[in-house]
């Protein structure tokens, strides 16, 4: 499956996993993640959410670079979302302060 790399000029919206059909570069995702960790003191469940968001963003990067098929990608995303909910009783992409901070930093990286 051919996926386009996110470019601000190609999209009318800021990037977010749940509203975009594009992908981000590995380096941008990792830099945004590091910036979030260093920006504040986060709780255990907040860091767990951040870790999973980064994992799924990197998974999408893997799909875009042909490291896995769409079926494999969808299966992993679904399993990760379910497993995370069982442990933390929330959706990975729930709008929390840490997820907001991550996407703010990621969109800064994408500029």
């Amino acid at each position: 499956m051919k996926i386009q790399k996110y470019q601000k000029d190609l999209s009318t919206q800021l990037y977010h996993f749940e509203s975009s059909g594009m992908y981000c570069e590995k380096g941008d995702i990792e830099r945004a993640g590091d910036a979030v960790v260093n920006s504040s003191k986060w709780s255990e469940n907040e860091l767990a959410q951040l870790e999973k968001i980064i994992e799924l963003e990197l998974l999408r990067y893997g799909l875009a670079t042909d490291k896995l098929t769409l079926d494999q990608y969808q299966k992993i995303v679904s399993e990760e979302v379910d497993t995370f909910y069982q442990k933390w009783h929330m959706h990975i992409f729930k709008d929390t302060s840490i997820s907001q901070t991550f996407y703010t930093f990621l969109n800064k990286e994408l500029l």
Binding site: S20, E46, F93
Partner: peptide
């Protein structure tokens, strides 16, 4: 935002 139960108004989670 960090309330334990996700309110249905936040069931859509994109930008």
């Amino acid at each position: 935002l960090n309330a334990p139960i996700q309110h249905p108004s936040d069931f859509y989670m994109g930008n």
